[in-house]
Write a protein that binds this DNA or RNA. Structure first.
Length: 798
RNA sequence: GCCGGGGUGGUGAAAUUGGUUAUACACGAAAGACUUAAAAUCUUUUGGCCGCAAGGCCGUGCGGGUUCGAGUCCCGCCCCCGGUACCA
């Protein structure tokens, strides 16, 4: 078949699948559910090869499972809020809604052209009012349960996008979207208190069937650390206490100074007379530095003395308090105790600023050395009654003592920070809050949702939300007292939209609730979730958080949304770079499909290499797949089937191929599954295919080449659809050859081999091996040792 | 720096728990068949070196080691990719 011929039959079958709605699932009736989900795409308007890799290749797994006595729900939708639409609006004066819907409709067509077996009857798009109504409802739900609040917070500010980014959205100190250097700024923002769930988000990672790598990343991101809070009274105002967090309370006697972050709320109070100017200048300069600059680049530890002192809780010594930006306000308590002898950062800081260094730990290995920082634990010295204890013991005993004095307690902190969800952007779900002069902050009643996005909006980014400039939107009445009031004009981070969409797919038209509870109970969790590794932290963590919150209030049947997760790799341009328009290395799948057909393109992508690996696009091997399909066609159509099995081993080969392909697809190892089919087809071509062979070959190839195989299936005299026909079965006892080749080694070197019946005794195998002439030549006496691997090899050591 | 993952032919890549002769399956290349010709298809060859051949030697980033046996395990090193960032 030529490419255009393929296109013709592909369009025919796609039309039939669509007309007969064969992939639409009646969720209420279905048995043996299998929720197959791809991370839904942003509707950029153009499908590139990477999309094909995600959606068309993972469809192979969905199609195989569907035929294995499962009802597969494989929905598709669009993560449709976000910056590109707004940028298009700013640049070209387009309406973001219309622009997005147009992209959706062209992407839908393109996605259908892949032959992927999506259930389009459940399509969602997060930018539609019937969806974001429930995103807003989620916000209110969080509000109701005390999991959201407006908080003045130092936030990452992207000067180019004029918006705030969550800490997690800052990549290497730069804006994840545009790459601009991010600066710190203090603004009132709505946050979700994801840190309330830190412990559970951490603990529940263990039981997930996810790549170990991804689980490790989640754990590291949450970053639990165990230690203690220690409180230091100020020398001048003993009522005021400075609280620090430390994981090394065993080094408490080595504290020679304290450091607070420049943004710490006590900084002004701590600044003593005569130091104001220096401190203010320092705080000012620190605000211009990004977190990255402060924490990473800086080898030189800058800082300024505040002029005030704190009292050591156990020795009552006076400790100077410094302001330094290597301490971050958002981490721990925003203040640390300086133990230069036993912490590298403190050591550097103390050396630079001539602060006292007191060693209090004798390292387990080596000697106390005044010129060296010792970070490993050991035995305490110079620590009053605690001297002689190990670090481990002292961590307990010192905290106990502090607790007794009311100056400390054990504590656990997390690296995870609360999730700032406010965005000063137009194209997102408006935050459903009203500010009233009398009633203060009032949530919009759920019945009044959605709070619709206005259309009379000036999009230009000024740092203020575009919605603030819409009179019709910002002016409203208070839902509580009816007086004139003002709406919140920020919109929600798009990660909020995608944190609950897998619930919505189950009942996208539901107007009574965000999802149908009976269906949720039946269909969740997602059985297989497939998406890029770049979402290892953010999206997956947020979705888990949402699911847990809903679970806690009986609105989710599960506390984890994604039972099994797998990543697909990234397809790079031929130049081994990420595909992008500016680099001109984007591979256009439409042209490939026009020339070779969808079956060839999706199968070639599957054949390229391990699915989780991705790699640069090379077109070279594409023709190999095309040739293979032509060979299959010949095997099924042109050559008459051998009337019966050609022999016992032919049947065995078929059974073992069925087994292999079935197992490989289940593990998403599409490349080796296809290789097994190719190798088998090569053999069939030589020996002739039986009717059973032809059917099995067609059937097994179906997930890869769904169109071609429907055609062949029909040719074999079956009714459509192969897409719904039972998956071929195999008899495990027939998947192994009854004869094996056993190799014979002398000292690990291959010297001969013989074919024999499998599963023989060691003695029988050795006897046969010794009959080989070449072996007799080497093996004159008794071997020193004989190793026998049943059915495989014999090694005589002489 | 740290944490993950990886380094196998000209190319994409195979190889249960260490167990055959590493390199399956493809691509590319070379030669041949068919053809007026081309395309398509088919056949053969294709890790390197030496050799007319038989055959031999070397070979999974580099150097050691364990083992009867190592692509697979251990130690040290080099390089590439992803994540992360002074976390107290």
């Amino acid at each position: 078949m030529t490419g255009p011929e393929r296109r013709e039959i592909e369009q025919k079958w796609q039309q039939r699948w669509q007309d007969d709605r064969i992939f639409a699932v009646d969720l209420a009736k279905a048995d043996h559910k299998f929720y197959h989900l791809n991370m839904f795409p942003y509707p950029s308007g153009n499908l590139h090869v990477g999309h094909w890799y995600n959606f068309a290749v993972s469809d192979i797994a969905a199609r195989a499972v569907r035929r294995q006595d499962k009802t597969v729900f494989n929905p598709m939708g669009f993560d449709a809020f976000g910056l590109p639409a707004e940028n298009a609006a700013i640049k070209h004066g387009l309406d973001p809604a219309a622009w997005t819907e147009q992209n959706i409709s062209s992407m839908r067509t393109q996605l259908q052209s892949t032959g992927a077996s999506f259930d389009w009857s459940k399509e969602i798009a997060t930018c539609r009012p019937d969806y974001y109504r429930w995103t807003q409802w989620m916000f209110l739900f969080m509000y109701q349960h005390g999991l959201t609040e407006k908080r003045e917070a130092p936030v990452n500010w992207c000067p180019k996008d004029q918006t705030i980014l969550a800490n997690e959205q800052v990549v290497g100190g730069k804006c994840e979207r545009c790459g601009s250097e991010v600066i710190l700024k203090k603004l009132p923002q709505w946050v979700f208190k994801i840190t309330d769930y830190a412990e559970r988000l951490l603990k529940d990672v263990d039981a997930l069937d996810w790549p170990e790598k991804t689980k490790t990343m989640q754990r590291n991101w949450i970053g639990r650390s165990e230690g203690a809070y220690v409180e230091f009274s100020l020398a001048d105002t003993p009522d005021t206490r400075l609280k620090v967090f430390t994981t090394r309370v065993d080094t408490l006697y080595g504290v020679t100074y304290l450091v607070v972050a420049p943004e710490h709320s006590l900084t002004p109070k701590l600044t003593a007379e005569g130091h104001t100017e220096a401190v203010e200048a320092y705080v000012e300069s620190a605000s211009h530095k990004s977190e990255l600059e402060r924490t990473e680049l800086q080898k030189q530890k800058t800082g300024v003395f505040s002029g005030s002192y704190a009292i050591h809780p156990l020795t009552a010594e006076k400790l100077p308090i410094w302001i330094a930006d290597y301490v971050l306000a958002t981490v721990g308590t925003g203040a640390v105790m300086g133990v230069p002898a036993h912490d590298e950062r403190d050591w550097e800081f103390a050396k630079k600023h001539d602060l006292l260094i007191v060693a209090v730990i004798h390292p387990a290995t080596g000697e106390v050395n005044a010129n060296q920082v010792v970070t490993e634990p050991g035995k305490l010295i110079n620590s009053a009654e605690f001297s002689g204890q190990t670090s481990e013991e002292a961590k307990q005993t010192i905290v106990a003592k502090l607790k007794e004095l009311g100056l400390g307690q054990p504590a656990v902190t997390y690296r995870l920070r609360d999730w700032v969800v406010s965005r000063q952007r137009y194209w997102g779900a408006p935050i459903p809050i009203v500010y009233c002069g009398t009633c203060d902050t009032v949530p919009v009643p759920a019945a009044e949702l959605p709070v619709l996005l206005p259309t009379d909006v000036d999009f230009k980014p000024t740092g203020e939300s575009p919605l603030a400039r819409s009179e019709s939107f910002s002016h409203t009445t208070c839902p509580r007292c009816g007086n004139a009031a003002r709406r919140e004009t920020d919109t929600l981070d798009t990660f909020v939209d995608s944190s609950w969409y897998f619930f919505r797919f189950l009942s996208p038209d539901n107007t009574a609730a965000f999802t149908d509870q009976a269906l949720a109970k039946k269909w969740l969790p997602v059985d297989l979730y497939i998406g890029g590794a770049e979402h290892s932290v953010l999206h997956l963590l947020y979705a888990r958080f949402f699911t847990k919150v809903l679970y806690d209030h009986d609105l989710s049947p599960v506390s984890e949304p994604f039972q099994k997760l797998r990543h697909q790799g990234t397809i790079l341009g031929p130049d081994n770079q990420k595909m992008s328009k500016s680099k001109g290395n984007v591979v256009d799948p439409d042209a490939l499909v026009a020339e070779h057909g969808a079956d060839v393109v999706r199968s070639y992508l599957a054949f390229m290499g391990p699915y989780n690996q991705g790699g640069p696009w090379h077109q070279g091997g594409l023709v190999g797949v095309e040739r293979f399909f032509n060979r299959v066609e010949r095997l099924v159509i042109e050559s008459a089937a051998a009337s019966s099995e050609v022999g016992d081993s032919a049947g065995r080969e078929r059974h073992s191929v069925i087994k292999k392909v079935t197992e490989e697809i289940a593990e998403l190892r599409f490349n080796t599954a296809l290789a097994a089919l190719m190798a088998w087809a090569n053999n069939l071509e030589k020996r002739g295919a039986s009717r059973e062979d032809q059917e099995a070959l067609t059937s097994l190839l179906n997930p890869f080449a769904p169109h071609l195989t429907e055609e062949l299936w029909q040719h074999l005299g079956h009714e459509p659809y192969l897409a719904l026909a039972a998956w071929p079965e195999f008899d495990n006892s027939l998947t192994v050859e009854d004869r094996v080749i056993v190799v014979v080694q002398i000292n690990g070197r291959l010297r001969g081999s013989f074919e024999t019946q499998r599963q023989q005794s060691e003695a029988a195998l050795i006897r046969q091996a010794r009959q080989i002439e070449a072996i007799q030549h080497y093996l004159t006496g008794e071997p020193k040792k004989t190793i026998v691997v049943p059915d495989k090899l014999i090694n005589f050591v002489i």
